[in-house]
Amino acid sequence: MNILYAEVDTTKTMEDLILEGSRDVYFSPSVKLEAASGRCSISGESYLEEPYEFYKKIAEWFMAYTRSGGKGIYLDLRFSYFNTSSSRAILEMLRVLKNLQNSGTEVAVNWYYPNPDDDEILMEGEDFQEECGLAINMVEYELD
């Protein structure tokens, strides 16, 4: 599924996008996208029934943000788990950021991974970087 060319209404004032994470039948990460600063974060578990719809909403926000004059997107990703279908949707979202970067938007992505317990999360971040061509900062953190 390609989400790179979604239609976005740019006549509205940009608003923050905040989604509280949930752990029900499916798990969704917490999302905080700040229109005033371009500071964004996605964290938690991503085991979704419709991951493309979830991440498409985020990608659309990124596109609308840049069209409304936003200069930079600074994204922190801190996943503790994501399933295969979420992985594909996350990759598509990162490809949107790469396209925005290619169009002149400043983009910085930090990929947080736990030390030393989960090499899988680190390897996934490195795979995303290779697949989408976007420079991603790998940031180690200690588990609580």
Rank of each mutant, 00 (worst) to 15 (best):
S86M: 06
L33H: 08
T84V: 11
S85Q: 08
S43W: 10
E45D: 12
S41E: 07
M63D: 01
Y74P: 00
A59I: 10
Y55D: 01
V25E: 12
G70N: 05
S37V: 05
L77R: 06
A64W: 00
K56N: 15
D76I: 12
Y55K: 01
E60Q: 08
L33T: 04
K98E: 00
P51D: 09
Y74Q: 03
S41K: 05
S85H: 05
R23V: 05
G72Y: 05
Y55Q: 02
F82M: 14
V31S: 06
L94P: 14
F54T: 03
F79P: 04
S41F: 08
S46E: 08
R88Q: 15
Y52E: 14
Y65S: 01
L97A: 15
Y65C: 06
F54N: 07
K56G: 12
D24T: 14
T66R: 05
C40V: 01
N99F: 14
G70M: 03
A35Q: 00
S30F: 07
N99C: 15
S22Y: 06
I90T: 01
V96C: 15
A64G: 14
T84I: 14
R67E: 11
K32R: 06
A64C: 09
A35D: 00
F54A: 02
S80A: 11
V31T: 13
V96G: 12
T66I: 03
K71Q: 09
S37H: 12
F82T: 11
A35H: 00
R23I: 08
E45Y: 08
K98F: 01
R88L: 10
F62S: 00
L94A: 09
R39L: 15
F54L: 04
E53F: 08
E92M: 09
R88H: 15
F79R: 05
A89R: 01
D24C: 13
E50K: 10
K71S: 07
S46A: 08
R23L: 07
K98W: 00
T66V: 06
P29A: 10
N83C: 09
S43I: 11
S80F: 10
L75K: 03
A59F: 12
V25T: 09
N83P: 11
L94Q: 10
G21Q: 03
S30Q: 11
S43C: 14
